[in-house]
Amino acid sequence: MTTQRTLRDAAIGDTVTVSKLSGAGHIKRRIMDMGVTKGTQLFIRKVAPLGDPIEVTVRGYELSIRKSEAENIHIS
């Protein structure tokens, strides 16, 4: 059985595609409001020294995402 990778598992310099969003309604809505939707490409720019937050480029702008939010973004 293979496990679905999440944004939290991505390494600096990776370009990934969002395959699915999970989480409670308000969390999922917040992620979508930031422009992260199924099929969107994300470029992992930086990760803070302690791993939180993760900085990504999405739709031409930089976005910082907490690890707790990144766990709800499934990637391929």
Rank of each mutant, 00 (worst) to 15 (best):
Q4K: 06
E62K: 14
T37M: 08
G25Q: 11
L21A: 06
I31V: 14
R8W: 02
D9K: 03
T40Y: 01
V58M: 04
T15I: 14
I12F: 04
I54E: 07
K20L: 11
I31Q: 01
G23H: 02
D14L: 05
M32W: 00
D52H: 13
E62R: 15
E55P: 00
E55G: 01
E55N: 06
G23E: 02
R66Q: 15
V56D: 03
I12L: 08
V18M: 06
R8A: 11
K38Y: 02
L7Q: 01
Q41F: 01
L63D: 03
L42W: 06
V47K: 12
D52V: 14
G23K: 01
M34Q: 10
R29P: 01
Q4V: 08
A11Y: 06
T17N: 08
D52E: 12
A10M: 09
I65W: 07
G39I: 09
D9G: 00
G51M: 07
A24R: 13
D52W: 09
G25C: 03
Y61G: 12
D33E: 12
K46N: 15
A48G: 04
L7E: 01
L63A: 03
G35I: 07
G60S: 05
V47F: 03
L21G: 03
L42Q: 09
R5W: 00
D9H: 12
L63H: 11
D14Q: 15
G51C: 08
V56R: 00
I65Y: 05
M32R: 08
S19D: 13
Y61V: 14
R5Y: 00
I54A: 13
K38M: 09
G13I: 15
Y61C: 09
D9T: 06
R8I: 11
D33C: 03
R29N: 10
P53L: 09
V58D: 02
R5A: 03
Q41V: 02
H26T: 14
Y61I: 13
V36Y: 02
